[in-house]
Design a binder for these strands. Structure first.
Lengths: 237, 237
DNA sequence: GGCGCTAATTTTGTGCACAATCGCTAACAG
DNA sequence: CTGTTAGCGATTGTGCACAAAATTAGCGCC
């Protein structure tokens, strides 16, 4: 298990938001769970801290962050700023192939929503924004957008009322339509209002529901990783 | 000399663009220069790599990046996307006090330009964009903008023809005027065209001019740091 | 019984030594 | 003369051991 793998597993785990806030991620404990040396965990932890996926307190260790709604406001504001700019750029530069790809994605979202497949829809819903970031074909923007979207995923998983999520699909379609028509102003507006609406859907639910232990959660995530990795290896070989 | 200090010194050094590209920053060598252990340097180097201020090659070490014009295109595109979004946001949300502050800054830029004080003007010119980022009052946007602007500083210092720089002042004023008038569309346009113009001013000068040695450059930077730090200490005490 | 202080324990931070890897050079074969 | 390979030197990566810091538990005192 190399550094990249551990980083991937932990970052996915943190983005999923399955852990409550302020959970201590002890170096020694993680080292035992992953079966690697403490230094390797240490490096990964500091990197995750730099990516703002957890909080590093000097001489105290790493803690999962409680993404409170106050911080949520900041993240969504940042997304409105960045993704509005992205929308403007994309409206001017999308190729026909990219537009087709977007249409396909929005349709898939609608399908998942109609069939009541909520996990799939949730995933596709996030991927829509990742997809837009990719289409800028700008690695810097991609990284910045990735970081922001990751952080909102934690928020959504924790605070969003599932009922409210349902209406998001039409908003994505509105963005798509404006982009496809290359109407810059309309695309920016659609993106802006979409992100504002998602933000308003966050409810301060007092969720202190206790999940399984850290060991179990990570074990599951490792299993998922091995599965995906195995599949990739088969495809490659 | 703690980690933060070393990071600050090196990041300022790299942003200044005084070093040519592909200069090797050996861990042992830097450790000796700063008079600290290799591990501390190591940590800082990796962090700087993560911030894309230098390049880390596995088993090879850290190298200053040659900010070639190809990469410059990407950075400026990212800035157009992000700072256009910022301009739109600011046009809607600036306070009167902030507008006054901006006016003051633009005037200072004009003064510096008129009096031919090029170093000051160059600094103010960059600070204009930092100032706009600050005024979003959004720490995430501030960090992202900071990273982008830092990277362009390297480019400008290296590739921009000094003669061409002179016309940038009016562009900043145009942005300011649109923001002050709260004309969102105009502000976005002004920002977009400004960043495009700056980019076109970059010339592929074949500058292989050899500067002083790494030791000398860093020694100078350390002196600057101590001076600033000393002043801060005096003000604090 | 509550509060504050101290000591012990646990956890992170750091320096050091060794191992692994890479590039370079030189020698040898074709 | 050129291309390839093996050995060497240098530099980074990693595990380990120790040091520093913080939390907690225990104890005495008010």
């Amino acid at each position: 298990m190399d550094e990249a793998a551990i980083h991937g597993i932990l970052s996915r785990l943190l983005m999923a938001g399955t852990l409550p806030g302020s959970v201590k991620l002890g170096e020694h404990r993680l080292a035992e769970i992953f079966g690697v040396s403490r230094e390797r965990i240490r490096k990964v932890l500091h990197r995750l801290g730099h990516e703002r996926l957890l909080e590093i307190v000097k001489n105290r260790g790493a803690f999962t962050i409680e993404p409170d709604l106050r911080e949520g406001r900041v993240v969504y504001e940042a997304r409105r700023i960045l993704e509005s700019g992205m929308a403007a750029h994309l409206a001017d530069n999308l190729t026909e192939a990219q537009i087709a790809r977007l249409r396909q994605h929005v349709d898939a979202e609608a399908d998942a929503l109609r069939s009541g497949d909520q996990p799939t829809w949730l995933r596709l819903s996030a991927e829509f924004h990742f997809l837009l970031a990719e289409m800028t074909e700008n690695p810097i923007v991609q990284r910045q957008a990735h970081e922001l979207i990751s952080r909102t995923l934690m928020l959504v998983k924790r605070y969003e009322t599932t009922a409210g999520s349902a209406c998001g699909c039409e908003e994505h379609r509105a963005i798509f339509r404006a982009l496809a028509a290359r109407e810059r102003g309309k695309a920016v507006k659609a993106m802006h209002s979409h992100l504002s609406l998602v933000e308003t859907r966050l409810r301060p639910t007092i969720c202190v529901e206790e999940g399984p232990s850290l060991e179990e959660v990570i074990a599951h995530e490792i299993a998922v990783y091995r599965e995906a990795n195995g599949a990739a290896l088969m495809a490659a070989g």
